[in-house]
Design a protein around this nucleic acid. Structure first.
Lengths: 238, 238
DNA sequence: TTTTCTCCACTTGTATGACAACATGATATA
DNA sequence: TATATCATGTTGTCATACAAGTGGAGAAAA
């Protein structure tokens, strides 16, 4: 059996490990999981960790437990989306990459399909965003709302749903978006972001689908580069 | 004599209690939950119970916890993506559009990043798919497995997750993919699909990211057209 | 022999105390 | 004022103990 390395919480790792073993059939539906003591022995973790992991899988409906008997794998191996871990820097880059795929198309559809109501909504969100454009902290929510409005204007509910899902994962960890206050390129960085937003906004307003796609793709590509620089001790993201 | 109403475990009761408080707005999205010690005091249970309850809600995506800070309520509506209704024809078109956004990029990344193992996996899936290429019924699962292998080869877990989620939604309704047996263009239709798959496969194998993107985009665009024609009493999809 | 009962080992559920890791704000220091 | 340090509160992990439920081995009774 594998040895757990402490990069994220032990219980989260164990959840992933057990989920994997269930997914690949090592533990099939109906099977009994090893007892808590056995898992403690195999993975060299405390009972707390084991119990929290099992508790999580039970909440997911993957396991059912019976006192005095054991934990059993259900046939409900339904796919759910993994939670987002902001400490995993690789995951952050993957998330930005994923957003680029989705939001680029959403922006294109928004430009092609936006109604008058969408335009009013987008204008409100964009103005709100502009008024906070140079405040890296107050910047997070308006930015998200702007992206959300674009997804809404795409008139495809799946783009909106996935955007809401992503926001629910990212927003609580807003510290990611905070910049070091003494950073010299703060202003130029924020101005650059705002310029990207403006280009994107105008493309959607004018109904330029290809332009909107290009603007969004550039915006998120630059986000990725900024975040990569942050890893090297540089600027912030977005 | 067994209890007729087996008392639920304390942690399960607490999960229900907290879920209720969140549902009725006592704790709104973004709010911080009371600390573990506070919950211990309020409900007169051990820390074990509190932690297991929180662990369960976290697995549900309703909470996120940050060490040293607290537990926060997420936008729980974003966690579970809405179920897919295959009878809603507009939803099907939207889903195909959504898949085009995701899978096009996934194909591009797969072409750029595929390893030797990915290539073996892709070849196996493609061969399997080819052997069923002219059987519209046996065609569904291999087709999905092929698309799944591409998402896996993108080496971005989010593409894989969303693909698994989509598959879990669509696959059970595989009747969608069945063609009327007396349809004259069956063969040409299936041959066209297979040709698209082959172009896609070869682009990924040869590491041609742009070619893979284009092939996947065309593939799903054609799927959309085929499905649109189906609505007008024409051919099948995929 | 067959049936029934009791007891025991093992399992999960709960409680408690301790310490580590982390974040934040207050305080002291330059 | 700006910086560094520390105190405090929070979640994460470990360890131990006991309660409660289950099932089987083996004794006891028929």
């Amino acid at each position: 059996m594998k040895r757990l390395v402490p990069k994220q919480s032990l219980s989260a790792q164990l959840v992933a490990e057990l989920r994997g073993l269930i997914a690949n059939g090592t533990f099939a539906p109906g099977d009994k999981l090893p007892s808590e003591n056995e898992l403690i022995r195999r993975y060299q973790v405390s009972r707390t960790v084991v119990r929290e992991a099992i508790s999580g899988l039970r909440a997911d409906g993957i396991l059912v437990t019976r006192q005095g008997v054991g934990a059993f794998v259900t046939n409900q191996t339904g796919k759910r989306l993994e939670p987002f871990d902001p400490k995993d820097l690789e995951a952050v880059l993957h998330m930005i990459e994923f957003r680029r795929a989705i939001e680029t198309e959403a922006a294109g559809h928004a430009a092609a399909r936006r109604t008058e109501r969408d335009l009013k909504d987008l204008k409100a969100r964009f103005d709100e965003l502009s008024s906070h454009a140079l405040d890296a902290n107050a910047f997070v929510m308006p930015d998200y709302q702007f992206h959300l409005a674009i997804a809404r204007a795409s008139h495809n509910p799946y783009f909106l749903q996935i955007e809401e899902h992503i926001g629910a994962q990212i927003i609580p960890h807003s510290k990611l978006h905070v910049l070091a206050p003494d950073m010299p390129e703060d202003l130029s960085f924020l101005k650059a972001v705002q310029a990207e937003h403006e280009r994107l906004y105008k493309a959607i307003v004018s109904g330029d689908a290809d332009g909107a796609r290009a603007a969004m793709a550039r915006h998120l590509e630059h986000s990725r580069e900024r975040y990569s620089r942050l890893l090297a001790g540089g600027a912030g993201i977005r």
